[in-house]
Nucleic acid binder design. Sequence first.
DNA 1: GTAAAATCGGCAATAACATGCAAAAACAGG
DNA 2: CCTGTTTTTGCATGTTATTGCCGATTTTAC
Lengths: 251, 251
Amino acid sequence: MLLAERQSLILKELNDKGRVYAADLAQQLGVSEDTVRRDLNRLGEMQLLRRVHGGALPLQLDVPDYADRLELKHPDKQKRANAALSYLQTGQTILLDSGETCLYLAKALPRDMRLTVVTACPLIACELMHHDKADVIVVGGSFFKPALRSVGAVTCNMLRKMRFDIYFTGACALHPERGFTAKYMEEAEVMRISVEQSDKTVVMGGPDRLGLIANHQVANVRELDILITDQSADPAVLQALRERNLHIVQV
Amino acid sequence: MLLAERQSLILKELNDKGRVYAADLAQQLGVSEDTVRRDLNRLGEMQLLRRVHGGALPLQLDVPDYADRLELKHPDKQKRANAALSYLQTGQTILLDSGETCLYLAKALPRDMRLTVVTACPLIACELMHHDKADVIVVGGSFFKPALRSVGAVTCNMLRKMRFDIYFTGACALHPERGFTAKYMEEAEVMRISVEQSDKTVVMGGPDRLGLIANHQVANVRELDILITDQSADPAVLQALRERNLHIVQV
DNA sequence: GTAAAATCGGCAATAACATGCAAAAACAGG
DNA sequence: CCTGTTTTTGCATGTTATTGCCGATTTTAC
């Protein structure tokens, strides 16, 4: 049996059974356990499975979902949110995305400023419960748990019926050429409409998100207006973004 | 069984049931309690669960204090919510009102029951974030802070497009002759439509709400189906309600 | 308070592992 | 075809990880 053939069989077995044991594979494939271990290690290095003591498990793409993001306290996100506040004016209608940075922004909204705040994130709506001066509008739809927000056709239809002065969003991935991209298709669609329906789009994103490309297109850089990021952001990327008419603020 | 596989199963069990016992896991997984304890301790170190004496609990994410504030303050509301669970069946589409009792109900929804849960209350939507088996639909609209829910024309339109197997609601005021009434006009309108769009309406309300009349009509007693209340409820009022075909459960 | 349950630490048996080595096979170039 | 190299494989070695058990201790429930 060929090496590659054997490794394919291992992957197939893993896919079928949901787990494989080194000892079983050795017997099943008629090779020594050492050989199986070598195969498993290589497949692990190639990110084709998760190597564990005694065998291997399928890769589980641990999506950094909202819950995880919430656990970490990020003073830098707080800073970016505070910086974003300076674009606000009394009486405006703003659209707040989901995400931790936007949650910080919601928390930081001046309590004495009259605003209309629209959001598809229930957590942000709850956060604004005690903001007396803010009219809050909840955008409904299918609740998408990984992003903690409404998505889908109902959400899109409701957004299309509105206009916003500013759309605040956290950056999933922002690349000079490939533009603003998001991880999930449904989320990307809602964000695309959000950009379209807003006079101005303010993106808040750490240096780690700049230069990244995610799977689903939201907007190109020229459709965005302001990026709020850190001092540590890569100057080359920033320059490339500036050349595409994006105003950049570093805090 | 692989160590990592076992730990995954523990996390899955924890996610499904909302808590795990070391002794149960040992038997279930066919390993000694020592091994289970070691697994639990490691998972605890990895911040994947909260280790407690006798087992483990899910991580308490910093879901806003609104929810925590309500915790365990009203054991009677908890009881009524638990009683309401018995009317649930797998696969149903239910409408959850806002209110503390409904929040208890949301917390108590079986983690392994497939459901479609519709709600106009963002707090309840957030609460269901970790309920993997539940499809959650958020009803949008103007956010009405006193009731912590969406109201208004958008909310009503969205509800009118749906049908529900059961509508669970807390009683604002329930009177044998004047029926089910609510304090706020906009809220009452949404609740009226909720009753109309549902095959069955389950009202959970303490004895203090029975016999009361609020300003805005929601439904008459014959439009309701089940009342879940306490032993201490006034027998005369209950009898009057029964005569109007309301099924009454006392917990 | 007391008894039961759960926990902790150490210990030993076993399984799984990494490493080096050598034989065999496949390969490359002349 | 031959020779030197690389790859693959199995084996032997020592090392590490996992697990169950035991006794001492802590926590919990009554």
